[in-house]
Design a binder for these strands. Structure first.
Lengths: 167, 167
DNA sequence: GAAGTTTACTTGCAGGAAACAAGCAAACGC
DNA sequence: GCGTTTGCTTGTTTCCTGCAAGTAAACTTC
C-alpha cells in the first residue's frame, strides 16, 4: 500500500506525542526515551557489536519480538538516537546507525556494564571488565573512533558480532 | 492481618522468581532490574536528594502512583539495591536507604544526567551540568561520602530535598 | 481512651503494552 | 516467472501499568 519508508514516517509522527514529561530532570527525560528493557540493548548492539540491520537485532540472543523491535527502532529514531537509510547494496535492507546523540550514550552504557559485571553473576570475563573499568577514557575514545569511521567490527569479540551478514 | 513487614517479605520471595534472564550480558541483567521508567528515579532521589520515606518519593514531582512506588521499592529491595528499616522515631515509617550495590549506580546516573542535559531541553542550569561533567570524580566521591555518613542533605539544592520531613 | 490523622501500603479495575504466531509486500537471485 | 530473503504488519492472548479507592497500624489530640 505505502512504501515502507513512508509508513515508518507516519508512525513516528503519530507516536511521538504522548503524555507530557513528568519533570524537568534530565534523568527523567532520558528514561522517558529509553526507560524500558529493550531500547538500551539495541543501542548497545549498535555501539559495540556492530549491528546494523533488523535481523541482527532479532537474533541478538535477547529474544525480542519483531513488533517490539520495530516499535523500539521507530521510537529511537524519532528521538534522534539513531538514523536509518536504505542499504545501497540491497534495497530491501534498512541500515540503522547511531547518531551523535546516540553515541553519546556510550559512557552511560559502559558504566552500566561495569556495574552489572560487578554486582551480578554474568557471563562476562572478569579480566575484560576490570580492564574496561580502568581504561574508561581509552574505551570511550575507541567506541567513538569506530563510530566515526563507520567501522562495524565488534568491540567485544566475546559478545559476538552480527552473524553472517553476507550469508 | 499480617504486620506490614511480614507482608513485604512474603511478596519479595514470591516475586523474585520470574522468567529467566535473556542473556548473560551485564547490561541486559541490569536492565532486567531497573529497565523501566521509575526505578532509576527512585535511586536518583535516594542518592542526590536525600529521600528516605515513601511519602518523599510520592511527592517528588514525577507523579508516580502509590502501588507502582510500592512495587518498585519492593523490587529494588529484593534486587539488593536498597534496604529498609523502620524509623525508630515513628514505627509507621519505613526508611529506605541505598546499599553498596545501589550507591554504585552513581556513575551511571551521573552520565545519564549529563547526557540528558546535553541533548534535551531540561530545567537544569547549564553551569551546574558543565561542572558535573568536568568534576566527575569529585562528585562521585561526594555522593559516596554522603552515603557513608548517612547525610541526607540534597546534593543538588535546585532539585529540592524532601519537603517538611518534620511537619 | 475514643476520635481523628498520618503513613505506607493493598485491592480492583480498565486500558495498554509485550509475547507469540501468522501473514505480506517489495527486492533480490536465478 | 519463481522461490527466497528482508523488514516489517496484523491479529490474539497474556501480562503489566496506572489510577481511584480503601485499609490497617501507628501516632496525636483531646
Amino acid at each position: 500500500m505505502f512504501p515502507a519508508s513512508k509508513l515508518r514516517y507516519h508512525r513516528c509522527v503519530k507516536e511521538k506525542f504522548r503524555a507530557a514529561p513528568r519533570s524537568g530532570c534530565p534523568v527523567s527525560i532520558g528514561l522517558e526515551i529509553f526507560g524500558d528493557r529493550w531500547s538500551l540493548l539495541i543501542v548497545r548492539d549498535l555501539m559495540v557489536r556492530g549491528f546494523r540491520r533488523f535481523k541482527d537485532f532479532l537474533e541478538s540472543g535477547e529474544g525480542i519480538a519483531t513488533n517490539v523491535l520495530a516499535d523500539r527502532l521507530r521510537k529511537l529514531e524519532s528521538a534522534g538516537i539513531l538514523s536509518t537509510r536504505t542499504d545501497p547494496d540491497d534495497a530491501r535492507r534498512v541500515l540503522y546507525r547511531l547518531t551523535e546523540k546516540g553515541i553519546d550514550l556510550a559512557p552511560t552504557l559502559l558504566d552500566l556494564l561495569v556495574w552489572g559485571a560487578k554486582h551480578e553473576q554474568t557471563g562476562a570475563p572478569c579480566a575484560v571488565i576490570a580492564e574496561m573499568a580502568n581504561n574508561r577514557a581509552t574505551i570511550l575514545a575507541e567506541v567513538r573512533r569506530r563510530w566515526e569511521a563507520d567501522d562495524p567490527t565488534p568491540l567485544l569479540p566475546w559478545l559476538g558480532g552480527p552473524r553472517n551478514s553476507r550469508r
